[in-house]
């Protein structure tokens, strides 16, 4: 966390880089479509690293040929949830694969307050750690307003 200025959460691909431009997002999606992966847009306002299942925005997009359609959906999602985390997922549906092949964040809240570490001392010298986001104190949908 020390090296991560501004408390940006770092999940998925490219998260240590500056935010991707729409052009860069488009070329990433192009790659996904070239590999026949189904692309979906997901959002959440719970930044905890163990929160793996985000809400899906709209329906997953199969059989697309061009990234423009997905960018349209991303922008739609940004309009609806300007202050949420939004990520783009590419799902590889080939048999035996059937798992996410790509995942990167395309939108984040303006203010990311970061995480606190709670140390719980148990049994002698053992310590248990809990990581929780400051934002998660508030109920859903009010976290980054």
């Amino acid at each position: 966390m020390m090296t991560n200025l501004g408390n940006r959460i770092t999940q998925g691909q490219f998260s240590f880089l500056p935010d991707l431009t729409d052009e860069q997002i488009t070329s990433q999606i192009k790659w996904a479509l070239k590999n026949d992966w189904a692309v979906g847009v997901e959002y959440t306002d719970d930044p905890h690293p163990r929160n793996t299942y985000w809400e899906m925005f709209g329906i997953p997009m199969f059989d697309l040929k061009d990234p423009a359609g997905i960018l349209l959906e991303i922008n739609e999602c940004r309009k609806t949830f300007p202050n949420h985390y939004i990520r783009v997922m590419a799902f590889d549906s080939t048999q035996g694969g059937e798992s996410p092949a790509m995942s990167f964040i395309v939108n984040r809240p303006k203010q990311e307050p970061g995480f606190s570490v709670v140390r719980q001392e148990v049994d002698g010298r053992a310590v248990r750690y809990t990581v929780r986001s400051y934002a998660a104190d508030k109920p859903e949908n009010e976290r980054y307003s």
């Binding site: 709209g58 329906i59 997009m61 059989d63 697309l64 040929k65 061009d66 990234p67 423009a68 359609g69 997905i70 349209l72 959906e73």
Partner: peptide, 14 residues
Amino acid sequence: APKTKEVIKKAMGG
């Protein structure tokens, strides 16, 4: 709306 949009998205680039 979702149905139309799905079709449109499929047709994008074509």
